[in-house]
Nucleic acid binder design. Structure first.
Length: 123
DNA sequence: TAGGTGACGCGGT
DNA sequence: CACCGCGCCACCT
């Protein structure tokens, strides 16, 4: 837990790597899995400000409309597109991904297991 | 301390 | 569909 009592970023770094290869996830979805459904903006902020771990698949994150919106050198929409195409995720010329088909539809069990893990880690 | 900012999201038009 | 307004909330001046 950080000095101000905030543990959101630690949770993010545990959730991110769970996004399956060949799938994408939304900022809001990650926030929800972190137990903070209203913190979608903070997920983007975490990446923008370099608070995410090395193994965080930043290219697999997009907004709720399916648009790639990376904002730093590690994940520009162009780079995200390149990486996603490489792992078999179709991305249109205007950086749009079909969330229905390639979104990560996590299960309730996965969400519950994460919550348990956070509790065990005290974060 | 107050106010501005934003890799967001939802609901309304 | 698209566009807009507004709520959101940790961070940073």
């Amino acid at each position: 837990m950080s000095k101000n009592g905030y543990d959101f970023y630690k949770r993010i770094n545990l959730v991110g790597p769970l996004i399956p290869y060949g799938k994408v996830a939304t900022y809001g979805q990650i926030a929800l899995l972190c137990g903070k459904p209203d913190n979608a903006r903070q997920v983007g902020y975490a990446l923008r400000s370099g608070r995410t771990a090395e193994d965080f698949p930043a290219h697999r994150l997009l907004n709720n409309r399916g648009y790639l919106s990376g904002r730093n050198s590690f994940a520009t929409p162009e780079l995200q597109r390149e990486l996603l195409l490489r792992e078999g995720v179709p991305v249109s010329e205007d950086y749009l991904v079909n969330l229905k088909q390639f979104g990560w539809h996590h299960t309730l069990a996965e969400a519950e297991e994460l919550y348990l893990r956070f509790t065990q880690l005290g974060i």
